[in-house]
Each structure stands twice: as C-alpha cells, then as structure tokens.
Nucleic acid binder design. Structure first.
Lengths: 221, 221
DNA sequence: CCGTTTCTGTTGTAAAAACAACCGACTTGT
DNA sequence: ACAAGTCGGTTGTTTTTACAACAGAAACGG
C-alpha cells in the first residue's frame, strides 16, 4: 500500500497533503487495494457503490452496452484520476454503467462516508481532502459538459474536430497522442468505427490533420 | 430577499438547514438577487464566474451555439436547482456556455469561496452546506452521465425512447409533462426538429406513445 | 377582431451515417 | 515460424438524418 503514496500525492484528492499525512489517512479512510486483469469488471451495472476508486497502476474504462449491444465509452480514468465520487450521496441509487480494467491495473478504494465524515484529530488534513473532493467533482462536471459539447455535434466530422481540438488545447500543442484506439474512439464519440475511419482520412486529405496510429497532428492551414 | 427563504429551504444546497439559519447565512454567503427577462443573458461564454446561481422564480437554460449557429441545450435549471457549482475550483477557467433566462425569472447568487471557506461560528450549519454541495455536485454528475446516455444513442428514435423512459422513471408514471417545447427538446437531444417531430409521430403510430403538446404517455403494449 | 408570430407536423431531396464485408499489416502466443 | 487474433482502412448498400420549404392551428398583441 505504502508504495503507492507517491502516486496518491499526485492525485487531485490528496493535493496539498504531505506523504506522512496521506499514510496516516489510509487507514482512516479504510483504503483497500485490488488488482484486475485487462477487461475484468471493477463495478457492474446495478451495483450500489460507496467507495471512490483510484487507479494507481493502469487505467479503467466507464462504459455501457445498450439493448442492441452497442458499446458506449463514457469515460476513461487514467492513473491517479478517480471514479465513483458521483455516488457520494447516500441516495445515489445503483450504477448505470459498467467499469472495467482498460489494461492490467491496480485500484485503490476509499470509503466515501469516511471522507465526508470528519474524524478525530488524527487526520489534520481531512478538511483539505473534502475541499479537494469538491474541486474534483466540479472539474469532472466541467469535463462531462465538455464531452456533451462533442456529442452534441451533428456530424462525425464535427465530433472529431471538437474532440481533437480539445486534446490539442489540453496538451498545449497541435501534436499529441490520444488514449484510444480507433474502436475505442468511435465508442467514445458514439459513432461507427468505419465511418469515423473514413472521416479521419477525409480530414487528412483535406490537409487539416495528420495521424499515425494514435498520434495526431493538427495542421495550421 | 427574505421572501425567498421558503424556496431556499427546498433546495439541495440548504437541505437540513432551518429558515432562521438560512437567513443568517444569506449575508455570510454574500447572497445577491437579480431579475431577468426571458431570453436575457445571465452569464456569457467566456465569463469567469465565482458564484452559484439559484433561480428562485422561473427557470434558466444552459446552452451554446456552434460555429454554424446550431443551438445545443446543455441543461435546464428549474426553480430551486442551481448552476455554477462546477466552477467552484479557483482554476476553473472561463465558461464555455451561455446561460439565459428561459422565462422571466429571479436568480439568487452565492459566492462560492464563501461557501467553501468555513467562517466564524455565526454559521453553525456551514459544514452541512458544504456537504450538501458535495451531494449536489455528485448528483449533477450522475445526471450529466445520464444525459450522455441519451446522447450516445445512435438514432433519433433511440434518443427519444431513452429520454422519455428517464422522464417516466423520474415521474414515477408513464404519464408526464416535459419542460421543453419541440424545438427545445430537439436542441436538448441535439437532433433536427422536423426529423424528431417525424419520429415522435412514428412512435405514436407504432402505438408506443401518445402525446399532446408537452404531455406524454408511454404505452404498455 | 384581425394581423402577426409561434408552434407543430408534413413532405421531398440531398447528405451523412450505419452496417456488413473484406483486405492487408501487424502482434501475439505457442 | 505459423496460426490466430487485432487493428485500421476501404468499399458498396441501406437506413437515417439534416435541411428547406410549406401549411394549419394556436397563441399573442394591439
């Protein structure tokens, strides 16, 4: 458990908390560790969850399948990011998605109630963590709205442009790699893979982008 | 200001706080009131905001226009709901959407920093409000994910079924009214109005739904 | 009361996406 | 080394959507 403290220090949840204090909080927050093989379920649709999951090695995918078997990737949670904070409220109801390991990974879990219930003086940074939780929640909120921005575009081409523009902004450069392969990107944007592949090539032919595997370059024109 | 305390008591933010204490907090949280005519801007794209907005009369719409003038309705915030909590973090950046009055309305604003910074003993329910904020944020998170669920459906028909099913669940009945007219619903689901109108009639002809204006009935079949 | 505006449904056409099927390049495991 | 699987691109067909234009009904305003 201790070996992951450097990872935790980089997380939004423990921002501003020293290693020594994180270690003290681990037991207070009832932290547990679990490893998963690629594709294994971490949570399933219908589960009632009360823990925040933080991948400390590898990354996880939030997805769901509709009645006809189409997969939608809601989000990808990388190392040091977190999932489950949306179920902080006691009456959150059951999960509507599946959470699976995108690759072999290790996930640390924290009890949400322990975070929200300020405990004894042992955890002097507890209020910091609560505030961090608020910030993390509001940031995820903005990200979801951003994703809604992509999804609300009418055509595959516009969705791609919207997504790639955001990635470029995020990376501060027109040259970047994305965390998805083609099928995953299609599932993330909720479009057909072949149609998307087609559109990517058309964007390239129009001189707007270049790409190789999951590395993209947006051109100035 | 005082006359809206009954409304505030019903909000998620002040859940569990007594009228007397809410009144005391109003000044502590630097609450301000502002009225808007239908269509007026409350916030504009690019604004840096640091206040939570709660409509105490009427409702507001979160929307944006793309380069070609297509409107997308991100969300509708009814009386007693809130907007702006996603910008709680100091480094949230500028708003990416417009916020306008859906109808003539009155909005109360609260300073986010005042909420997060626990003040003197005057506000004994301050920690309750912070916890309420966490719950509200996580609930909005789930709602956004739910909306992503609708948006990720491939066809207009599926989007409609997904949306209407959720409304039925929310109302605990297959008979309900929606807060949108046709154009707004189309903008909310990011589809073409006429195509959607078409699809609604097809659903009706298939015996799956009935509707009159914004009142819908889902049939059992 | 009447002209105007808004709202909703309808139709036809053009554009776009979904779907299915296939191919070649590359990876992986044995 | 080879069989099997994955991945990305391509093509053709069918389905669905966007768009534009119009019409009737209802709501609105003076």
């Amino acid at each position: 458990m201790k070996k992951f403290i450097p990872v935790l220090m980089e997380t939004k949840l423990f921002d501003g908390v020293m290693a020594y204090d994180i270690e003290a909080m681990l037991s207070c927050l009832q932290a547990t560790l679990c490893t998963y093989k690629k594709g294994e379920h971490i949570y399933r649709q219908g589960d009632n969850i009360h823990r925040i999951a933080v991948p400390v090695e590898g990354s996880i995918i939030i997805q769901n399948f509709d009645y006809w078997g189409n997969r939608s990737i809601i989000n990808m949670i990388g190392t040091g990011e977190m999932f489950g904070e949306a179920y902080a409220a006691p009456d959150s109801g059951a999960m509507t998605n599946d959470v699976i390991a995108a690759e072999d990974c290790t996930v640390m879990f924290f009890d949400i109630n322990r975070i929200l219930t300020v405990c004894s003086s042992a955890c002097r940074f507890h209020t910091t963590v609560v505030q961090n939780l608020v910030f993390a929640l509001s940031e995820k909120n903005r990200k979801l709205m951003q994703k809604l921005g992509h999804m609300s575009k009418r055509t595959t081409r516009e969705k791609l442009i919207s997504y790639l523009s955001e990635q470029a902004r995020k990376n501060g450069s027109g040259s970047f790699t994305i965390p998805f392969n083609r099928q995953q990107l299609a599932d993330f944007l909720s479009v057909d893979r072949s149609a998307m592949s087609n559109e990517l090539c058309r964007l390239r032919d129009d001189g707007m982008i270049e790409f190789d595997k999951n590395r993209f370059i947006l051109k100035y024109k």
